[in-house]
Design a protein around this nucleic acid. Sequence first.
DNA 1: AAGGCGTGGTC
DNA 2: TGACCAAGCCT
Length: 348
Amino acid sequence: MRESASAQELLDWYDRNARRMPWRVGPDARRLGVRPDPYRIWMSEVMLQQTTVAAVKSYFETFTARWPTVVDLAAAEDADVMAAWAGLGYYARARNLLKCARAVANDHSGVFPDTREGLLSLPGIGPYTAAAVAAIAFDRPETVVDGNVERVMARLHDEHTPLPTAKPVLTEMAAALTPQERPGDYAQAVMDLGATICTPRKPACGLCPWRKPCAAWEAGTAAELPRKLPKKRKPTRLGIAYLARRVDGAWLLERRPDKGLLGGMLGWPGSDWGDAPQDDPPIRAEWRELPAEARHTFTHFHLRLMVKTALVPMDRAPIRGDFVELPDFSPSDLPTVMRKAFDLAKDS
DNA sequence: AAGGCGTGGTC
DNA sequence: TGACCAAGCCT
């Protein structure tokens, strides 16, 4: 009979193997009584939503250096925050980050709520993030369930019900294991285990602290779990981007509406993205079509973006968008698909 | 409540 | 090289 897994085994593993991350308080500082800063934990957790640690690190450093406290962030300009988030993806997170910072600053005197329920009421904080911040920053015994935890639980219990159907069951399994002591470290330990040992493909079961109690290890099914419902294939859409450069070097740009794809971000005026985009330039000019197109894949479709360029005189008024002069424009302020179009146009 | 919502790395 | 994957949230 297998013995059931224990949180203590995992905590011991974590104490030996915890990865250093900019938002984590190291063991030395922890011994000196340093507690995690809720603002930094919240910031890191929002950035980590559906995003890898490697991608997040530099953004986290930039954000926390530029806006050291939630009150600083609450006072930031929308455009500055969106520009700083450019390239990280899922831009609704940036809009909600600001909304949340302003709610904390204005409605909570600049202090984060210290319970899962309180956190859950804030913009951009869902079940995962609320539990993570409550556990890691406030040491509350909340159960954190992300993709890692789902995978670890599915294997530990050899659960073959596919996701997302299995989610409630996996959540119960995770809750049954959550300890009263060091719940924050435990939450991070399960996620570290999933990220480094209990990986989606080729799990390193030989190194796993939970190998003995693992039902999937015993059954030889670990690499097949968790099962997932098949995904739809992505359609391909076509579009046109118009990159107009004024003779003084200014570029014609447009702020996208808050709702929808790339909401709130700066971008090039363009056509709709669909089967047959209509040629509808944002300013009267001699437009030139570039020989290459920008290709980009979003969550639910592939895009082939035709790029058109034009050089326009100083006195020509745009139909859509605004000219942004050089010192005020950096291509790094653009979402990646727009930067790809710029890279094609800039040396043409 | 199922689908919209980014990006870069990996195989 | 195309499909899958990553510390989800919102509507």
